[in-house]
């Protein structure tokens, strides 16, 4: 298993950057959007529907010369709680992070309640994670409880 991952990470090899692995296929493009790579000039490769023993199908994103902020890792954790983030330096995996859902997320999730103050005024949203699997979050302002399927990111 370990060797198989290494092989995948090498093609195409990146000298420095980030490989996000174990993304559910269906949210892979959403994860791309979090990284906001529209104007990005370095190599990006995306693979979808790869066979995975633990997940059935998975997606992988490889980005050269780009490292993630804590905020970005937290956002990924909401969409893909089992994702791993590999930090690549000198063509090798320097560090492997299993993403973790934080207890609270600020200004990442959009409240699904149209009558919530956060959808009426320019204010930061503030959600607490009340259940990790299946994901359930509560809006600090209107106290709406949202499940994974209701969640959209800001």
């Amino acid at each position: 298993m370990k060797q198989a991952i290494k092989k995948e990470l090498k093609v195409p090899a990146i000298k420095e950057g980030t490989v996000i692995d174990h993304i559910p296929s269906r949210v892979t493009f959403k994860v791309m959007r979090i990284l906001d790579l529209k104007e990005f000039e370095h190599p990006i490769s995306v693979a979808l529907n790869l066979k995975s023993k633990s997940m059935g199908h998975k997606g992988i994103i490889k980005v050269g010369s780009r490292f993630l902020t804590e905020d970005e890792v937290n956002k990924i954790a909401i969409l893909a709680p089992n994702a791993t983030v590999n930090i690549i330096k000198g063509y090798g995996v320097k560090e492997k992070i299993n993403v973790q859902l934080p207890d609270k997320v600020i200004n990442i999730i959009k409240c699904s309640n149209p009558n919530c103050i956060t959808n009426q005024e320019k204010v930061k949203t503030h959600f607490s994670i009340i259940n990790k699997a299946p994901l359930k979050v509560i809006c600090r302002h209107c106290e709406r409880v949202m499940e994974e399927s209701d969640i959209t990111l800001i």
């Binding site: 009558n115 919530c116 103050i117 809006c139 600090r140 302002h141 209107c142």
Partner: peptide, 11 residues
């Protein structure tokens, strides 16, 4: 009349 208005006011 807006949900969450009180929490925002407190902030």
């Amino acid at each position: 009349y807006i949900e969450g208005a009180a929490r925002l006011a407190a902030e």
